[in-house]
Design a protein around this nucleic acid. Structure first.
Lengths: 343, 343
DNA sequence: CTGTTAGCGCCTTCAA
DNA sequence: TTGAAGGCGCTAACAG
């Protein structure tokens, strides 16, 4: 014998419904899938039993039997507290829910090992696909071979050493645009505040900052470049130091919202007007009263595109030849707030 | 015969591993659960086969067989784009992940029917528990009887007509504290900006606003009360109207971050200093340059407490007598920013 | 120490 | 129109 059930969760099974309706389990199954080959009276009796017992079909058992997929999409982000990622998650939700799928959400806190664990865990739950904002630079655990061809889409960062779809932001172009604005406003000493040097996004934005200078026949002063700033406080300190030093920059470029916030605090504390440019718009940016040149983009759209790409992959699995991997880039746009600088 | 497999997802099964290692599936199962009763050499052979095939145990099949729970927690929020809810989700994640459970996240967009669907759907996936921020005032679909005793914890709003655990914010006390501050600063005409009249949270905060006046022997001017403001723009318009009218209030109380943002915009546009008090702190509130009296609380903590309560319930299921439902209230604190008002 | 049997809840196939 | 058999991937109980 093989009993050994532990929970016996109290939820009725299909056989409970069958017994209640005086039919076989098979008939219940047919009614639930709206199979036409069931008589009206039987159908009504089964439906009544379902309502009486509050029966819900067990989706896990169903997908096990059918083998066609669990209806679950794994989403792995680095930090849900950052509005950027929560918007991304919302975008994914939107597209995925419209297809009747559900999102299994995980937060890595930026730890690559944790990401590895989570991805492994999600595949153990047989998700139909994965959307990942990679925490580290090693992506081997996301390789199609490792995941047994579970479709994967990366968001924000391109794949490294593996061949999968991804959705990126125009980091380089956006940084270039923002910096060019500052230059055309007449600024010639533009500081740079960036976070982790290992981050792809930050590196691209730094490249854009540098390229804008070169395109204008200029070169940034290396002493005005501060990278590896871990949080708002670090950015604030770095900004204060830059702005208080000799040949202080007249403007600062910030790679993301945390850097911008630090810079805004520093400028506010200083009481002297300094032009700021940086990635990520935020509510009330127009009320701050500082000359801001914001590089903005639609975070929801990243999630939506990633979800659509993933659904495409899921739909076309086993359909003839394997499709080449795709890459899409979400555009940025520059928004200006506050008093016109350079006057 | 009963074939009919659809996907055949390509993922190896336990029997594939067994065949590869030249043992039975049972032995593989034992190795995977670290059962001591397996010889060293067999264990090594199985481990090698697992690695070679990249095998991952199918958690769905496992939980079906064990019957003890799926390791999934359902989380249903109204709007993930609101930082409040994303922090809450993060708090839930934190506690739940530490126990090796995963979060199935859903967004209702504030629609009660959608919530109903989602809850039904989550139970069909046999989640071990549910944390819900209710969208509507009807909670019958969350009743223990309907959910077959799947544990439920409500967040932000108390249960209506059902008996389940909940985590609340001290809406009344917080609003009272914030309003009292404005009163003790000397304000005697304090406007009120609130959203949906049907919302529990908003109603409690309105009560607090009113009670603070009564405690001071005063009564708010009804003409200065604006409720049912759907978004930031509506709040901004209402604030402008109030502040431009006759006997304009010298201060405004705002029930949440959207109301506050609208008010800040209005005051900013007006160019005249108006004291503001409202719920929900935000980044850069200290840089706005307005006299702000913020009622703040820890949104992560709501998620953490809800998750802990839920885990408690899950742990104590079937353990003797049913526990009475619990309720916990997260405290608020008042933070003051900007120039001291009333001078 | 290892294999066989049986069945979790469901559904496809075949038989009645 | 309905039921019986069998098995998806896994593991508890019982052999051997």
């Amino acid at each position: 014998m093989a009993r050994g059930r532990a929970g016996d969760s109290g939820a009725p099974t299909m056989r409970d419904v069958a017994a209640h309706a005086g039919v076989s389990a098979m008939t219940v199954s047919r009614v639930l899938k709206a199979d036409p080959g069931v008589s009206r009276s039987t159908r009504d009796r089964v439906t009544a039993a379902v309502d009486a017992l509050g029966y819900r079909r067990n989706e896990n058992a169903r997908s096990l039997r059918l083998g066609g997929g669990t209806g679950l999409i794994g989403l792995v982000v680095t930090n849900l507290a950052n509005p950027f990622y929560s918007r991304l998650a919302l975008g994914v939700q939107e597209i995925v829910a419209a297809r009747g799928l559900r999102v299994l959400l995980s937060n890595t806190g930026g730890h690559a090992e944790r990401e590895h664990e989570l991805v492994t865990d999600l595949t153990a739950h047989r998700v139909d696909g994965l959307i990942v904002v990679p925490a580290g630079s090693g992506h081997r655990h996301l390789a199609p071979a490792v995941l047994h061809d579970t479709p994967v889409v990366l968001a924000s960062r391109p794949p490294a050493g593996i061949d999968v779809d991804c959705v990126l932001v125009d980091d380089f172009g956006g940084a270039e645009d923002g910096t060019r604005q500052l230059l055309s406003d007449g600024h010639r000493r533009i500081g740079f505040l960036g976070d982790s040097q290992a981050d792809y996004t930050g590196a691209e934005r730094f490249r854009g900052y540098w390229a804008a200078h070169e395109a204008a026949g200029l070169q940034p002063d290396e002493r005005h470049v501060r990278r590896g700033l871990a949080d708002v406080a670090a950015a604030q300190r770095a900004a204060l130091a830059l702005l208080s030093g000799p040949d202080a920059p007249t403007a600062l470029f910030c790679t993301n919202n945390r850097m911008s916030h630090g810079a805004i605090r520093a400028v506010h504390a200083l009481g002297r007007p300094v032009a700021l440019s940086g990635f990520d718009d935020f509510e009330l940016s127009d009320v701050i009263g500082l000359p801001l040149t914001i590089v903005s983009y639609d975070a929801d759209e990243i999630g939506r595109r990633a979800a659509r790409m993933l659904l495409d992959r899921i739909d076309s699995r086993g359909t003839g030849e394997p499709q080449p991997s795709r890459r899409t880039v979400v555009p940025t746009r520059v928004i200006r707030y506050g008093p016109p600088p350079g006057t």
